[in-house]
């Protein structure tokens, strides 16, 4: 003896859904973000560090000089405050 729910269930199961196509798998995998992007910030950091290091090495060969020939310091240098519009 089959109950009304069981009877209905058996009839419903006659409607079978198709299988998804292989194209779906391709689409999903194509849309999935590639893991290589995960390493992009790391790669950018390495490139930046290498660039800074090279710049540092190349700039360390430059010598900064101050030419002081002929420089004479002012003797008894006094500071005079002149107000705007005042005649000197």
């Amino acid at each position: 003896m089959i109950g009304p729910d069981e009877e209905l269930r058996r009839v419903l199961k006659l409607w079978e859904a198709p299988e998804p196509s292989a194209k779906l798998d391709e689409r999903v995998w194509h849309s999935k973000p590639r893991r290589r992007w995960k390493w992009l910030p790391v790669a950018a950091g390495v490139i930046l560090a290498v660039g800074i290091a090279r710049f540092w090495n190349s700039s360390s060969g430059i010598e900064t000089r101050i030419e002081a020939t002929g420089f004479t310091p002012i003797a008894n240098g006094a500071i005079t405050v002149v107000k705007t519009g005042e005649k000197q």
């Binding site: 409607w15 859904a17 198709p18 689409r27």
Partner: peptide
């Protein structure tokens, strides 16, 4: 999930879009 989407929409291509 495809079966569920297919039975709600009645269309296999639409169900694939939804699962995607």
């Amino acid at each position: 999930l495809f079966r569920f989407a297919y039975r709600l929409t009645g269309s296999a291509p639409v169900a694939e879009d939804i699962v995607h």
